[in-house]
Simulated scan of single mutants.
Amino acid sequence: MKKIPVAIYVAVADNGVIGRDGDMPWKLSTDLKRFKAMTMGKPMVMGRKTLDTFGGRTLPGRPHVVVTRNAHLDVGGVETVSSLQAGIERAHALAEESGAEEIAVIGGGEIYRQAIEIADILYVTHVEAEIADGDTFFPAIDSAVFENGEELVVPVGEKDTYPTRFVTYRRR
């Protein structure tokens, strides 16, 4: 069985905030377009609250594996599992079936806290802002574990609320 890398995709403010009131506390159209392009065709592992932010639908072109305690969750196009480990295993099988070269872990906070222990790559959109009233956070990135790779500075786009830096980190 071929090792398929596990990648975390996250947008995080300077103070670690990734969410507020069940949503992202910013509008970043530029980043959402990059997210779509980078995750297309890849199985995505997420928590139920992250799925909820999609407004009762799934994102097209990507299998969804949702970690939930609710064994009766029934959303079309979504597979449910009871743990991150089971989610990664299912996503691995889906990636092998489809030829996808990566598993995308896309949130939320608790899923990220667990996944950062096993992730091979972090695709981080650093949102150049301090979000005062955030309620969901991303764990600190340990430079002894992850090496800062490519970096792209992204000025505020027409439909963006903040400038960003897109950084790829790889496990050392």
Rank of each mutant, 00 (worst) to 15 (best):
T161N: 12
P155C: 01
T164Q: 08
E147Y: 00
E147S: 13
V153H: 06
E151M: 14
E158Q: 14
S143K: 13
S143T: 15
P155H: 07
I141M: 11
V167C: 01
T164L: 12
G157W: 03
T161W: 03
L152R: 13
E158P: 10
T164S: 06
D160P: 00
E151P: 06
P155A: 08
D160K: 09
E147I: 13
A140Q: 12
P163F: 07
E151A: 15
A144R: 15
K159W: 00
D142F: 10
F146H: 04
T168G: 01
V156R: 07
F166I: 09
D142K: 07
A144M: 14
P155R: 03
N148I: 10
Y162W: 15
T164I: 06
V145K: 02
E151H: 05
E150P: 04
E158T: 14
G149I: 08
K159F: 06
P163K: 11
V153R: 05
V154R: 13
A140T: 10
V154E: 12
R165I: 07
R165Y: 07
R165L: 06
A144Q: 14
L152E: 14
F166Q: 02
L152A: 01
R165Q: 08
E158R: 11
Y162F: 15
K159S: 01
G149M: 04
V145Q: 06
S143R: 14
L152Q: 13
D160F: 11
Y169G: 07
G149Y: 02
P163E: 04
E150S: 15
G157D: 08
V153D: 12
I141E: 09
Y162C: 12
T161P: 09
S143A: 13
A140P: 13
E158I: 07
T161D: 13
F166G: 01
P163T: 09
F166T: 01
F146A: 02
E151W: 02
P155V: 02
P155K: 03
A140F: 05
N148F: 05
A144H: 14
T168K: 12
V153L: 05
V154N: 04
V156M: 14
I141H: 12
F146I: 01
R165W: 05
F146G: 01
Y169E: 09
